[in-house]
Design a protein around this nucleic acid. Structure first.
Lengths: 104, 104
DNA sequence: TTGACATATCGAGAAATTTAGATGTACAAT
DNA sequence: ATTGTACATCTAAATTTCTCGATATGTCAA
């Protein structure tokens, strides 16, 4: 987890929004989890298409945004069938908050 | 104080370094305060030239970096004679840490 | 007032980021 | 097997950021 990559990931309005939306997925993505069968629970995960719809950017853009945020450590993902679910990596984010408080 | 501007300011190795150096100015800038007469104390302030020397970028670059960081709220400055002293704006930075913890 | 110095601002070319559309890949349903 | 859907990757143009040298501004000292 390189702080610079995190800051770069957060230097964009859309990406920042995505991260905030994913704090309360059920609020911002009403259809959330529609494709996930009960036995595969991925709490807080939202599929790419739903995020794209809300973010109003192209499919390729949202895909690379999510990938970038994942590489920065902000998100984690799981693939289920044809869907990829992304959610916040709260553990890393908490580490980041600590880093910000003590190192910045 | 717009978070995005802060993240942009922190998305650069040199600027991130400057912010960290300014946490311990006396450690990183031995000559610190050489030009400041005693009656004008600006605790933790370091002049542009000293920062430039350590950062190893051009004078214009360091000047615009410092300006950018100030606009983002990370730094504050005071001019004394021909020197401009920059130091961390700890109040804002603390607010930012709180913002990061609660909003990110 | 002139000259020297510290810093700020300007202008421009190089490099990185943004973003979309086209194409590729994997899976599901028929 | 074929088709449709979800997502990833590639390519490229537009925009933004980076970074410098040149120039401008402000201040001090002689």
């Amino acid at each position: 987890m390189k702080p610079i990559d995190v800051f770069k990931a957060l230097s964009n309005e859309t990406r920042l929004n995505i991260l905030e939306w994913l704090k309360e997925p059920e609020k911002h993505f009403p259809k959330q989890g529609a494709h996930l069968p009960k036995e595969v629970s991925y709490k807080g995960g939202v599929c790419v298409g739903d995020i794209q719809e809300k973010a109003k950017v192209s499919q390729s853009t949202v895909s690379s945004y999510l990938n970038m945020m994942q590489r920065a450590g902000l998100l984690e993902s799981i693939r289920h069938g044809q869907w990829t679910y992304y959610r916040r990596n709260e553990e890393i984010i908490q580490e980041l908050a600590k880093y910000f408080k003590t190192e910045i």
